[in-house]
Nucleic acid binder design. Structure first.
Lengths: 241, 241
DNA sequence: GGGCGGCGGGTTGTCCGACAACCTCAGGTG
DNA sequence: CACCTGAGGTTGTCGGACAACCCGCCGCCC
């Protein structure tokens, strides 16, 4: 959950209810069990249940009504969008296609001064530079350019072992969980971005110029991802108070 | 806040603390007063305070640590981005520039079948069609195209009274609060979008193809906003659990 | 002197029981 | 039929208590 510590009882309940809601156990708009019932079911006090429900409320999964009950919010068709941090690979797989990665460059080099400033790290930091293409069912979806601080990588790091999703590598190999991304969005038209067999074929892109952090605000990576216009569905859920 | 009802005590506390945090009353990373202190200060029970702090936690404004305290999260420079629903006008003003609106069309007409399907309303719905340019210090920032159901507008509606921000019109004149937007993002290259004095000058845009809702999921508007690439800083804060 | 461990105070997490505020709906009343 | 009233159920708030946890102090031991 949001807090830093281990796992609290409320967290467990949040996870359980999240899974049920997303899994469709409750029809959209239907009532959640009352707090008293949830107490019995999870064997915790009402204070704990209230904490969990409060979180689901703030997250927008449910809505509470004083004196009535709490209801699962009828979500529009698209659940998560661009505002949700997540692996591109994963979202491709979710759309029923098979993701692929083709690496063109995996080299260690010192950071240039302007890059260091953009990333907010010392100028002499050593980074791993990646260039790759991300594909879905063989079609190029995005051209990506990433810089990852050497200090995050294992002592004995072999660039060859980085073959698939960078996101998955962080999660599974390094035990690092990217949870925050700060991106700038641009429309880009250029024939110099695409390379490989499709060089020059794509020329219109959505650029995500992005800094990645974990929950402690440690800088994890700087990436520029050029999504081929039309090849990737970009959704965005926007909210206000 | 998130819940539907009036205003709860916890809501008031959330607002007060939000204002203080955003206003910089607490240094980033510093401690929030303890729950006990907040109880005394607001004259409420700990249950209420905990509800408020929980919300701030989930919203990412603070972070609680069991046995230590709760701390305001050190926010990166950019606070809100594209994922935050809000008036374009407002964000222009926030950047220190003066927003302007130039309307080219304000007409009532019935909806076309494909538009109706996209908006999820009956095919014969009458809508107000708007075409306008949004400027900052006189420079065009975006070309916008909006459709608003006639049923939301006052009985006696004069198109001429809609002169500035549509967002502000909703809030102030109609008492309607847009809180949710579902957008598709595209990169667009075309010479046929810009009109007026700058016709043909702009040809690269970021398109936000968006449906607006209020908190009860009532459809408020369908809009296509073409942001002139480079004229508007697009930030996006992405998060995961 | 330096390192280790325990202890105490402070803070958040959870529990319990109770009441207030609020909504719904059935039934009565005019 | 319209309106009021009340009972019952649900969330919001209250008060007090204890558990789990973190930190720093202090004394003990080597």
């Amino acid at each position: 959950m949001v807090s830093t510590s281990r796992r609290t009882l409320a967290d467990d309940i949040v996870r359980a209810l999240k899974a049920e809601i997303r899994g469709g156990s409750y029809a959209p708009g239907s009532r959640l069990p009352t707090e008293a019932e949830l107490c019995r079911r999870f064997g915790v006090s009402r204070a704990t249940v209230r904490g969990a429900v409060k979180e689901l409320d703030v997250l927008g999964l449910v809505r509470t009504q004083h004196g009535v009950g709490t209801f699962v919010t009828p979500r529009p068709a698209v659940r998560d969008g661009l505002e949700r941090m997540g692996s591109i690979t994963e979202s491709i797989r979710a759309s029923g296609k098979i993701p692929g990665h083709e690496y063109a460059r995996r080299t260690l080099r010192p950071l240039l001064p302007d890059e260091a400033e953009r990333m907010g790290v010392p100028p002499d930091t050593e980074v791993l530079e990646l260039r790759r293409r991300i594909t879905a069912d063989g079609d190029v979806v995005a051209y990506s350019y990433d810089l990852i601080p050497r200090s995050l990588l294992p002592e004995r790091f072999d660039p060859e072992e980085l073959t698939g999703s960078v996101f998955a590598y962080f999660e599974n190999r390094l035990g690092i969980h990217p949870t925050l991304g700060m991106a700038k969005v641009h429309a880009v038209e250029s024939v110099h971005i695409a390379w490989g067999p499709d060089a020059g074929k794509h020329r219109l892109f959505i650029l995500l110029d992005q800094l990645h952090y974990d929950r402690t605000h440690r800088m994890l990576a700087y990436s520029r991802t050029y999504f081929v216009e039309g090849a990737y569905e970009f959704h965005l859920v926007r909210t206000s108070d």
